[in-house]
Design a protein around this nucleic acid. Sequence first.
DNA 1: GCCGTTTTCGGCCCGACTGTTTTCAGTCG
Length: 667
Amino acid sequence: MKAENLRPSIAMDNITLARLLDETAALLEIDGADPFRIRSYRRAAEAVEQQTTQLATLATPEADPKLLLAIPGIGKGMAANIRDLVATGSMPLRTELLQKYRPTMLELLRLPGMGPKSVALIWSALQVADIDALETAAKAGHLNKLPRMGEKFTAKLLKGIEDHRKNSSRFRIDHARDFAERIATLILAFPGIETVTPAGSLRRGRETVGDLDLLATGPACEPDVVAAAVEYVATLPLIDKLHARGQNKVTFTLRNNLQVDVRLLPRASYGAALQYFSGSKMHNVALRQRAIKRGLTLSEYALLRLEDNVIVAAASEADIYNALDLDYIAPELRENSGELEAAATHTLPNLITLADIRGDVHMHTTETDGTRTIREMAEAAIARGLRYIAITDHSKNLAMTNGMDDARALAHAKRVREVNDQLAEEFAAGKGPQWAAWESYEKSQGAPSSPTGSPSVRVGTYEADPGGPSPSNQTTHDPRIALPPHYSQLPYHRPMEPFRIFTGIEVDILAEGQLDLEDETLAQLDIVIASVHSRFDQPEAQITERILRAIENPWTRVLGHPTGRKVLKRDPYAVNVDTILRRAAELSVAVEHNAAPARADLMDTHLKLAKELGCKISVNTDAHAIEELDYMQYGITQLRRAWLTAGDILNTLATPDDFLAALRPKP
DNA sequence: GCCGTTTTCGGCCCGACTGTTTTCAGTCG
């Protein structure tokens, strides 16, 4: 089959469609339009972004019009808008608004304190529409003549413009997590504060975080005494600028411009607050609508009965969801993309967790561009409770990484087997890193080891003993800070068979789609990952063609960087993911999701699509250093956001042999 | 503009903080 026939036009992809609709909503706001009409544009943008099929293919004159209307939030008017956008690149309302206003106004909306009303006012009074002109006007004192814009407003705005220029980007989730832990540790030092939970987009596991929401509770947060704790938080030494302090809320920024909101809340309403501040906004709106239909009202303080204001639920999130006839919904799913319906019908997925991961089958060593040896990477994986890894250094075409030619690849694989055998011998002799890790874990639990051969421990598995050890608290990760678990917080399972290191390679896909090593070399390796690395300048169609040909290659067992997102920084959507995933599924080639923050190869819509198409998926860190193995937790979070379970992912398979058998067979 | 156990009209989520008010509008989350 020719690839052309498979490929729909993606000139107007879903992400672009969503952006155009969202911008139209912002312009309508500036125009002072009906707020409910504005909301419907926002809702439509969200809905479009979450679709797994490219709407451009449903918006053609030939397509069944019912398909678009079937999407919640898309009605007759919006469907017409989408058809216009696909056909012409714009739509009448948007064109009209852009003639009336200026596109640069959308950037003004991102300044703190600037909303649509202020943007509209400044435009009508001063004809100011961009940041530079706004700064000039503010410095000249022109804003002070306008209603509600005094000196303080101007000063704050100028600071906001400065910050915006300095750093208008969001923070990567791993950096945000580090800061959250650091600040939470300081807050926990105040007597009477017992737990701190990072909420907001960090809790939902978004790849980037705009600001931190930290919720603290404990006896010191009760209303009559909370003032002292607020005072303590507002004077923390790491605060660069204090922005606001209310009765139970403190807002500040750090020197790196990360904004932090700390809220101190009584135990009794902690669940309501946690639910509320975790969002997402659209999820909360939908949840409140559901509450109202049941004669209830939901706020950040409680779920109340409307008729008599009696509290129905407030202390825990589960109470609130249950009181609304819903199963508990994991934060990663709270995007108003079907999770409420699934929770109502008890059909939420049993989401994958870090504890399900048994192997990490993409990593590098000093042989190419990694920083550690084969043995060091293996020991680090053993310490993290993994039971198999693959050493997949680069092939020669990636010269800048010191990529290997055929001879080096074979010699390297031989060394990998040697380390593998060495570890196996040590294991059999009751020595080595596996037993050392197990013993240190048992010691940390302070409990006698479970007897060998107990019914829960089957030979050949790493299954936990029921009622056995619980997650270790002896880590640098404070259990009072509620964050997704780190490898070091998981129970360590008694090793029942030797750790396994697969031989492998990450081969570069050449311009014509062939792999850059000989078949005889590839035949000797357990895992061949074909990845797009170079040829940045190729047009979209050629890159997609190249990847398709690489998938056809019978030696390819895993497709690395399937969206090319890491490579194609300028346009991450320039690769036709639909077609690639379809072909990978047909040929049983696994697709790889890169767990490293901000390097995710498959967006959540792509992950959903991969599952729909029956793709084999594995999640790996592509670690170049020991610490990078810990990126796995972020990969897991992304999989959870895509509703995936352990059964959807290959490297959750318990034994190394099961994993190898699940890959596409070698020719 | 969307939606329907209120079904073709009349609804559509909630509260705090700020700067400016002299009782509140706008912004934010």
